[in-house]
């Protein structure tokens, strides 16, 4: 095979096998930006699955990155549990009031059926359209909130930490319910055409809970859940640190870890060697103000730290590029990866 003619899928698979493809693959994890493609509000955009699919296809064609990203927004999963999303003109929607107000509410909580949630059905529809369009050429990276992290949105962060520390029985019950939902949601997306599932698990990051608590909680949940997902997974800490728990994360059965800009990419790459591929870790917040030269320097630095030997995909560190990042910066990222990310095959 001529490695200069690799498809995105071939490029990504090669790097996940810890081999050097033709160039460093990169994921621009764009969500709300699709609204601008059609000049509609973010709320209207996410109401139309066909529009989301078409925008993802157009944005991939424009920037040339190596995936489609049918992820809508984090609080969409909460809608299946009876919560509402709050929309903004210039940002992803946010979860409304928690659905679990008291610990006792967990006892009467029931797992919603993915196929009865209108919001989740839209994502499946988007995924199907993308799959029809891409065939096997472009990976479709779908998203689930981990059962462990979903709970922080179901009940609010501080109440959830109180639950983890103070009420182990109800915590376990909530995880049982959430795991069942997460597995059904992940497998429905794979069935619809997703290539891999990005398992968002920020509460497990060492930024949020200590490693010893992770090993008793988020780790066990991830290990059980990932083993029941019928496809490859990438674990995403959404800007949180992961270095102290890299070995544990590898043991959950995931193939990729996304690290924080707060961690050194070289250190993460070394820690992951032979166990995990690395995704990351450009600073999406700072990116709003990057000049062309800064963008090129940041991309070059990331590549120099992590690309050798494959096992690396360049992306932002949060799993979602802010709406306010200018298109010029995205174009500059793309240009810089193509300039500095060529492997000498």
């Amino acid at each position: 095979m001529n490695i200069e003619e690799m498809t995105s899928m071939e490029r990504v698979l090669a790097t996940l096998c810890h081999e050097e493809p033709d160039r460093v693959p990169f994921f621009l994890l764009l969500t709300t930006q699709g609204a601008d493609v059609f000049n509609v509000s973010i709320k209207e955009y996410f109401s139309k699955p066909e529009m989301v699919a078409e925008a993802q296809i157009k944005m991939q064609q424009k920037y040339g990155h190596d995936c489609y990203y049918p992820f809508y927004y984090a609080s969409l999963e909460l809608e299946a549990w009876g919560s509402e999303s709050v929309f903004y003109p210039d940002a992803p929607p946010n979860a409304g009031r928690p659905v679990i107000k008291e610990f006792e509410d967990i006892l009467s909580l029931e797992t919603p059926d993915v196929f009865e949630s209108p919001g989740l059905q839209k994502v499946l529809k988007t995924t199907e359209i993308m799959k029809k369009h891409s065939g096997e050429d472009i990976p479709i990276i779908s998203v689930v909130m981990s059962p462990f992290s979903l709970a922080s949105m179901q009940m609010g962060f501080e109440n959830y930490l109180d639950l983890i520390y103070d009420d182990l029985d109800r915590f376990k019950e909530l995880m049982r319910i959430n795991e069942s939902f997460c597995v059904q949601w992940a497998n429905a997306q794979i069935e619809a055409g997703a290539t891999a599932i990005c398992y968002f698990d920020p509460v497990s990051s060492s930024t949020i809970i200590p490693p010893e608590l992770y090993r008793k909680t988020g780790f066990r949940v991830a290990k059980r859940t990932i083993s029941n997902i019928n496809g490859p997974t990438a674990t995403h800490m959404a800007s949180g640190r992961c270095l102290p728990i890299v070995d544990d994360i590898a043991e959950t059965g995931t193939a990729v870890i996304c690290t924080s800009v707060l961690e050194d990419l070289s250190e993460i790459k070394t820690a992951c060697k032979g166990k995990l591929s690395v995704l990351g870790n450009l600073n999406g917040i700072e990116m709003r103000h990057w000049s062309p030269q800064q963008t090129e320097d940041k991309v070059k630095e990331a590549i120099s730290k992590a690309a050798e030997g494959g096992g690396y995909i360049l992306s932002d560190n949060h799993g979602e590029i802010p709406y306010t990042v200018p298109q010029e910066v995205l174009t500059d990222i793309s240009r810089s990866v193509k300039k500095w990310g060529q492997y000498q095959g």
Binding site: L161, S206, I208, I209, L262
Partner: peptide
């Protein structure tokens, strides 16, 4: 400095 987690600071 990333030496403890947010949950520990919270508690």
């Amino acid at each position: 400095h990333g030496e403890i987690a947010l949950s520990q600071e919270y508690m």
